[in-house]
Simulated scan of single mutants.
Amino acid sequence: MPLDHYVTLGRSGLRVSPFCLGAMTFGEDLGWGSSVEESQQIIDRYIELGGNFIDTANFYTKSHSEKILGDHIGRHPARRDRLVLATKFSGNLYPGDPNGGGSGRKSIVSACDNSLRRLQTDYIDLYWLHNWDVHTPIEETMAALEDLVRAGKVRYIGVSDTPAWKVAQANVTAQFRGWSAFIGLQVEYSLLERTIEQELVPMALELGIGITPWSPLKSGALSGKYTRSSTEKPGRGVFLEPYLNEKTFALVDELEKIARAHETTVARVALAWVQGRPGVTSTIIGVRRLAQLEDNVKALEVKLNADDLARLEELTKPTLGFPQNMQPIFPAIHNGGTRVNGVQMPPSPFVIGAGEKPY
């Protein structure tokens, strides 16, 4: 599957590439990341390969990421209109200003106008709530976003790093009031981070929200660079070092075996696993170097078989808490030992016998 085999995001008509280009690394303002020149090369190559989905945020690299995108594509309408440009609000860029961030109306309207200015465009294709603001009623957030959609400044809205119950509340509220609802869910997802499978993934599947995972390589832990014998010093160590442990190394060992069988790399296998998960629409790949983009995109050619998936499942399957841990016994309670949807259900110990009646 190449980048130009587009998929619709959630229950919407928005067509996006199966891999989204993450722009968090555009700019060297935080001491790491891509130079302006290399960022532009990465953008050009991604588009050349057929990619159309680019994701940033108002405070990535102190807002320089948005400016790099604006300088390179925003001022060229014909090029801009062929892309799905996504950015986020919530981050506060202004010390001492309590309304400089968050999800209140004042903050959202200001953040949107500033992002439009930096991106040098008059509309944002997909505007993400970056993370849940516990101090703002979700009705206020959704109403403000609806106003931006009606004003033509935003085409679609999405949500990132927010509990499942709050996302569900937001979308049900929006649907009852005739407002725009979230079509995308951006969350961390990888072989080392599967806790979203407890609540967020089932919610997204039920509500028709497309999942766009971030950090599919767990900050590089699954890039293939770090093994038991590796001497490479981790970059951005605060994010990576906690995961350089026996569990990760055992997983990397298995990924290496699978990669050899498919004549590919560890990183591509890890990316292919994420992209193949239920509910996942477009996986965000964040790259700092052009060579990383070229390598990661080839993960779309990797097709994992049932044995590959079973081996990875054995090493990484999460322990799901209540009520998911009760799920195996529910069919027996519900269906009385009958066949439902082609599956024979086990009998329940609570079923009454022939000739008996319930009390």
Score class of each variant (00 low, 15 high):
Leu14Phe: 11
Val172Ala: 11
Asp44Pro: 09
Ile285Glu: 06
Gly336Cys: 05
Phe19Arg: 02
Asp44Ala: 15
Gly22Asp: 08
Pro2His: 02
Ala332Arg: 13
Asp71Leu: 00
Val134Ala: 12
Ser12Asn: 09
Trp128Ser: 06
Pro95Phe: 07
Val7Trp: 00
Thr227Asn: 00
Glu206Pro: 00
Tyr359Trp: 11
Gly208Asp: 13
Ala23Pro: 09
Ser63Glu: 14
Gly74Thr: 06
Gly31Met: 05
Cys112Asp: 12
Gln41Arg: 15
Asn131Thr: 08
His135Lys: 15
Leu185Met: 14
Gly208Pro: 03
Arg45Lys: 14
Glu206Arg: 15
Ser63Lys: 13
Asp97Gly: 02
Cys112Met: 04
Ser230Asn: 01
His72Gln: 07
Val187Lys: 02
Leu119Val: 03
Ala57Lys: 10
Glu188Cys: 10
Leu116Ser: 11
His76Arg: 15
Ser190Ile: 01
Leu304Ala: 11
Gln292Glu: 08
Glu254Ala: 04
Arg289Pro: 01
Asn58Asp: 15
Glu206Leu: 11
Gly22Ala: 11
Phe182Cys: 13
Tyr243Cys: 06
Ala310Ile: 06
Ser223Glu: 03
Asn341Gln: 13
Pro328Lys: 08
Pro323Tyr: 13
Ser215Phe: 03
Phe322Trp: 15
Leu244Met: 03
Val16Met: 07
Ile43Gln: 06
Ile196Pro: 07
Lys218Pro: 00
Thr195Val: 04
Glu256Ser: 11
Pro347Thr: 10
Gly74Asn: 12
Val287Asp: 10
Glu313Arg: 15
Pro2Phe: 01
Ser39Ile: 02
Gly355Leu: 05
Ser229Trp: 00
Gln120Val: 09
Lys88Phe: 11
Val36Trp: 01
Glu246Asp: 13
Ala174His: 07
Ser282Cys: 12
Ser229Pro: 00
Phe182Trp: 02
Glu313Phe: 10
Thr121Arg: 11
Val159His: 04
Pro328Asp: 10
Asp295Gln: 14
His130Asn: 09
Ala181Ser: 15
Ala259Asn: 04
Pro2Glu: 02
